[in-house]
Design a protein around this nucleic acid. Sequence first.
DNA 1: TCAATCAGATGATGCGCATTATTAGCAACC
DNA 2: GGTTGCTAATAATGCGCATCATCTGATTGA
Lengths: 360, 360
Amino acid sequence: MPRRRITQTDVAAMAGVSQATVSFVLNGSTPAGVRISEETRQRVLDAIRITGYTANPAAQRLAGGLAQILGVFTYEATFPRASRDFYGPFLTGIEHAAERLGVDILLFTSAPVADGRRRLTREGWQRLGVADGCLLLGQHEHRGELQHLLDTNYPFVFIGKRGSDGGRLPYVGADYVGGTVRQIDRLVAHGHRRIGYVGLRGTDQPTLDRVEGYRTAMKTHGLTTRFVELEDVAATADEILDQRFTAVVVAPENHPEELADELERRGRSVPGDVSVLLLGQPHHPRRGGRDWSGFSVPREEMGARALYLLSRLVADDEPRRDRDGRRPAAVTDAELHQVLVCPDVAGATVAAAAPGPDAP
Amino acid sequence: MPRRRITQTDVAAMAGVSQATVSFVLNGSTPAGVRISEETRQRVLDAIRITGYTANPAAQRLAGGLAQILGVFTYEATFPRASRDFYGPFLTGIEHAAERLGVDILLFTSAPVADGRRRLTREGWQRLGVADGCLLLGQHEHRGELQHLLDTNYPFVFIGKRGSDGGRLPYVGADYVGGTVRQIDRLVAHGHRRIGYVGLRGTDQPTLDRVEGYRTAMKTHGLTTRFVELEDVAATADEILDQRFTAVVVAPENHPEELADELERRGRSVPGDVSVLLLGQPHHPRRGGRDWSGFSVPREEMGARALYLLSRLVADDEPRRDRDGRRPAAVTDAELHQVLVCPDVAGATVAAAAPGPDAP
DNA sequence: TCAATCAGATGATGCGCATTATTAGCAACC
DNA sequence: GGTTGCTAATAATGCGCATCATCTGATTGA
């Protein structure tokens, strides 16, 4: 086992060439009129094989190359793991993809927290530089920081749809709209007509998309949209009964478990009297919690797809060719904004509508 | 927003000093006979504050400094989060500690897998270098690789006790011995006398420790140790009844859930007829699974403590002082090998022994 | 008065790599 | 025979930082 690390210079010496030649061979060469004969190339490759040379990522990065390190930054105040039920799956997907890509993952756990959200400023900028590109997680992004990333042409990909910014931000999101539409379809197929939307107004993308999906689907079926502002769970339960809903859709962050409890406390059964569909997975799966019907967000896949996309963007940035001298195909606009299907979850909180006043 | 990154040279220019001076100020200076006046120091610090300068980790690392990056390597074939019930909590703890320390975490997801376990060789060595030190996870470490780490004096810490290697390997483990002893104590306190150990023979540390704990405790109480080799769950259930055990202890990887099912299928209740104590948490918590009694492994804390220890080791390696000119205290032997208490879990699978032939 | 000491800093160097500019050798052409 | 053109490579440079060796000017000691 060698004491000192093996460098390109060592390899060069063994192959009887210059360090530069080794670098060219490793990078598929040909930046400008540089040519390496096939024979020399082979000699270098042999030397690399024999010595077991591997590039020092720090040096690569410093010299303006790629380090095969991709970063993960989050805007949440505490690193995603803490809210592990929600963020864990993203990271699992990211790690799987990283293994496939042969890339290391750098978690920016050091970024300072200000105003309850993590910032990229100051400390952040430089640290980002160790990674070839970065995945961005969490709702509360900071516009100025994003602008800087765009300005400096630093490759990044959002996890979660970003509609706000006219197509400049690459992202991999989930199709909350489509998922919600299908839930309404489902309810209608079960004979429901009075279907309420329970939730908080919000400007976050998932909420906007759920509302849009609800609106669209209700309109399609010629039904009236009815929103119930969630303030107090008990009050909301009363309202649901007052309005004689036979079904409601609700986002997972809006305490569906407690809501169902309240309904049952009022002598109604879920789904016997009221069907409840969840627009996403439960955030904090309770021991012995209900088996919710609704749709699920493909979080692992989102993580993985985001990393793949990021790696493509990084490759695009680097004007380097593969060994056939061709550049990989450029990233298309379609790739830049991916929205993944949210599969339906059968569950046990949906049933046929009780025949009510609106029944035929 | 500056286009080009701010370097020490920029800061130096602003403060009217040389780049070297800036570096000295940042590192608490004084490598050899170098002195910086308080006034100059302040000027440099001001310039840093104004420019918002931050060190480029790649450059720091290349120049032999610290990058404030700590690595996580695993010997498992797939990266830990994938088997997230077991490994997830370690990473949670690690991330929390990283936030506290202001350090980024590098996951070595790129390390190649050979023979079903991940290796550090070739690819690995150089990549490790980006991090100031590294946490090691998983059972199947490779001796040669460890030796190399020791030889090159690369700072690392194992998560999980490492007894095999006479105190040369730093680790943060869990006290399986003590935890197991207490479970036996618990059973004895409940009047149990015929207490079996169900499990597979294994040479992994946790298994060795559980067996040791069982042996010790049984001896202390003057009871006979009885091991049931787990081959087939059904056969094991039969054996438990044959031997008229009133209680068994079992490791979580040995299918406790199925075992209890088998017992109940035979008309025995858990814990009514047979108490079952789990020596650790369930590996794959089942929906609606039993509420196991036993002990839990403080995995998050292990992760966090391991990272703290690693950071101390790294600091120790670097002959650098803090701003008062003192070196932090060296790592003691006690710190080098930490074993954390495994708290008891009350649970619902333990009850008083049914009066049997051994009863008074 | 001249050497010795010391505070306070700076210049130069190298870490390992990517990349640009340059060179050496040789065949072809006028 | 000199110039052009081409292939095949190398020398040199810089990325940003840590660090070693060195330098300057002031103060002290004899």
